[in-house]
Design a protein around this nucleic acid. Sequence first.
DNA 1: CCGCGACGATATACCCGGTATACATACTGA
DNA 2: TCAGTATGTATACCGGGTATATCGTCGCGG
Lengths: 221, 221
Amino acid sequence: MSIRHGLLALLERGPRYGSQLRTEFESRTGSTWPLNVGQVYTTLSRLERDGMVAQGGEDGAGHTLYTITDDGRAELRAWFEKPVDRTSPARDELAIKLAMAVGAPNVDIRDVIQSQRRHTVKAMQDYTRLKAQALLAVESGGARERDDVAWLLVLEQLIFQTEAEARWLDHCESRLIRLSATARSAPDAPDAQSEPDAPAAGAPAPAPAPVARAGARTDRP
Amino acid sequence: MSIRHGLLALLERGPRYGSQLRTEFESRTGSTWPLNVGQVYTTLSRLERDGMVAQGGEDGAGHTLYTITDDGRAELRAWFEKPVDRTSPARDELAIKLAMAVGAPNVDIRDVIQSQRRHTVKAMQDYTRLKAQALLAVESGGARERDDVAWLLVLEQLIFQTEAEARWLDHCESRLIRLSATARSAPDAPDAQSEPDAPAAGAPAPAPAPVARAGARTDRP
DNA sequence: CCGCGACGATATACCCGGTATACATACTGA
DNA sequence: TCAGTATGTATACCGGGTATATCGTCGCGG
């Protein structure tokens, strides 16, 4: 339901036609999420079906314009006011993969973690490069200032998420080592050593683990 | 493509029938991602169509069993070996929302950020509670040890992600304040103060911002 | 004994997002 | 003038997410 509302938000600034919406959507997100044109039209027709949007006239060049309706505006406000639900989060393929790799035959979960970390760190570097560009764009403040700020925020979201993923991978590795050690030493009588380095329950201030430094692995020494 | 492979992974341990797969999938992820039964059957029939899985006989109770094929095993290995692609990440509704809220009329982006933070912090607390339970389960090491470990890892992924989201929200707030200040003071001549607190380019060691401490806001003083 | 609801198991229909592709129009340059 | 390219619109298909329909079995109370 995010494209739907994204288009509504763009339409609130005035009537637009299909591929114009695509362009504006992408300039907000800096082509981080390339939006297929087809989605715009299908989404627009659904919005029209639901009374959020009405097909207006044409502009000078003959493009059929879409206009937001009052229902659409109400829906948009509700969207902005209600937080995104994080109590039933989206499935994460990587998490599923590791969950399935735990104790799976013929799979060394360490290999999975390490190759994933290489990839994640590489993505992190790409984002960091992009962020440097975005900062330049924002600071040189052209007419597209608003779009540039939005792009910067989106990029930083990706950076924070990716960085968390890298730290989680590190954490998985050390946790698995710890668990297999205690499992071997005391299979049925676990000692109650609780939580050396995890985000502690109740006060989860994250350990500032160094990540992606100079493109190397992120293993702890 | 993650349910597909998740089911394949479960089937590698031996033939299973439909709702048994559902149960096992959920016990791995601790009902974090409740899997609708329907998806299992549709996914199984697609897997069968693609030759990854074959319908075996029945078990004692008359359940039709599915068995992984060699093609399925190959696909599964490839899945484990190839890292999850993070260079074209999934759309994040929250990021889109903030991108659209930047400079939108009639929307105070600060309100959006703050109400979202309340929600995110609350989700964080729920996860933290669940993690405590999961740790108990793992340490008391029953027969479901493998499932419990998998659930713990999944939970910790959610915690790391949620914590990153909270920090990103804090970051957005301070960045927007900073930007609006420089924009007002020098609309066309931005001073080149670069990056007080963001994960710095090249060496993105995150600032250890206190988050969700005692359930309060996460604003910096 | 019979009906009835609870539950386990299977199957199907619908919506939305993601991708690719068809198609039409207009602009441009050899 | 015609080919090629860019722009704009529309449609088909797939997979994931959700809800619902359909059975059969079991247990339980009337």
